[in-house]
Design a protein around this nucleic acid. Sequence first.
DNA 1: GTGAAAGCGCTAACAC
DNA 2: GTGTTAGCGCTTTCAC
Lengths: 345, 345
Amino acid sequence: MNKIKEITIKEIAKRAGVSKATVSAVLNERSTVKQSTREHVLQLMRTLNYRPKGFARNMKYGDAGKCIGIIVKELNYPFFTTIAEGAKEYARSKGYSLVIASSDYNHESEKKFTNLFSAKDIRGAIIAPIAEGNSEIEHLFKLKMLNYPFVLLASVKGITANVVEIDNKGAVKKAVEYLIKNGHKKIVHFAGPPESAHTKERVDGFRNAFSESTLAFNDKMIISIGSNTKVSYEKTIKYFRSRKRKDYPTAIVCFNDLQALAVMTALRDLKIKIPKDISIIGNDDIHYAEIYSVPLTTIRSPQREIGQRAAEILINNIESSTLVPIEHIVIDTELVVRKSTRKLD
Amino acid sequence: MNKIKEITIKEIAKRAGVSKATVSAVLNERSTVKQSTREHVLQLMRTLNYRPKGFARNMKYGDAGKCIGIIVKELNYPFFTTIAEGAKEYARSKGYSLVIASSDYNHESEKKFTNLFSAKDIRGAIIAPIAEGNSEIEHLFKLKMLNYPFVLLASVKGITANVVEIDNKGAVKKAVEYLIKNGHKKIVHFAGPPESAHTKERVDGFRNAFSESTLAFNDKMIISIGSNTKVSYEKTIKYFRSRKRKDYPTAIVCFNDLQALAVMTALRDLKIKIPKDISIIGNDDIHYAEIYSVPLTTIRSPQREIGQRAAEILINNIESSTLVPIEHIVIDTELVVRKSTRKLD
DNA sequence: GTGAAAGCGCTAACAC
DNA sequence: GTGTTAGCGCTTTCAC
């Protein structure tokens, strides 16, 4: 397997009839080079399409700038970008840049990016882990072996690592308790995508809430709706079309705000009024929840704070020359009551 | 200035009483190492908090995976993340990963990331450029000198480079023409943040539209509202509070959808009905525009396509061993009529 | 099983 | 102004 020969500084030097040092001087815009040789060399670099290798250039002087990375599950959901914002803010305050990558809920991608980050000397990573199956944590073990600093945004069974996470169960429980307190008796949960670990935790939280109330839980209260806008919309339409008005729930606890927005859009098209006919509670508190025309009652996860805390722990680890004790932080959520819920008489 | 001595493989080898090669074998999980030495070495690496340098590890075997980068202006605006999604899709189809960075409308940040990307051997970059002032394009010239492949998401005066951009002027013009055709005579433009190049172009497009109509343009039709949700909301409230109902415009052309959403929220709170009292047109067509309770009429920029095209040109450049002709692509926009506008009698 | 030595592509003294 | 040389931190033969 013969690789195409990469052009190097040596090659340029040879062809230009100068030494490597001169070519290097041109690359670094040193003023000691004669104008004519500079131009000759530049010309040659262009025609040979020579691209200096960054790693070799920065080998001596150490590193090309302090930088950390974050691997989120999805790029286009404000929940994650706001976490990244938080991380970025803290990072910047410490002189670090942040690069973002998205695994798209794909374990292989996550692995690829952890490799990439360590190979490129990104100094550490914040990872929103995909834990499909349970054995797929080798890449995390590898990071540990390499002493590569990282912080997870959810616990992963089988590995001891820094974690910053929210109390998913508690969050949904708060929502249900609020509804019960306000007289709701017919409450359902529109669950998230089956492949997400959050989905299960939130279902558990929903179920738990009933064990401490006089209302009884049953499996029919969990409806799988997902969080893809289009699919959620359609499933919501179908759900309501397939039952009589008197069998409608009086309140829906949604998996997350994106789903809640889709559900509200569906209800709008079904002429079901929020909160008159049905109360809706979201989860996450993304920006768009607040500016929706019926401002969404939701459970806020302090996204900026999550990012900040994770970055803080990460950078502590990066900068310490000795081992730092592992941290596990559970961040509390908060019920934000807006206009999509009401008290029942 | 004495730097703290970095731990290297040599140091580990010395302390462990083995050779560098053995330590390397441990790092690479080779099975040829005796269990006891492996453990001893690993132990030492841990206590000394040794972190292998990625660049040195991958020097020989070339590169640690194909990867391109994108520098957006803002992380938390779906317009940009959707462009990134498009770029990611194309990149993946060619075996590349994508990392994202945000300049936050800051020229220094942009520069830092271009340096970082080339230093880390990210193979090329898509850049949404900040062109404050006009002389701040040295970093782009540097990239050109280094033969570093890049594609801009807006033209920058003074530099010849690959560009994929949308026709901003044309977009706003379409909006105005549509409104005029539908009987609107009192149209205003809520302009974006002064520091954005898009703001100016869109104002120009607004003005242009009048030159081809019987309506007259005047400067009072341009109101600076920005695109920060909170600020836009407040400025909108102020704008309407400060004038009589009969002086209200019948239509507003918004800088972008994020602003439009904020404006609509303000109008809701002012009890001004959309589109009965006032028609609103956005710009960009972000996801949330469609699911808003009054679905937003807007000018769609095909964000995915922008990302895809940019990635395509970039990767072509990366993979070609010879010089590739420079491309300049202007992508057309499209008026998407939804419910926030109406015909005037 | 382990070590010695060469080499990756570049930069930075220091000669000439 | 330009060339020579010695590394940077690691991997990889190939002996032992």
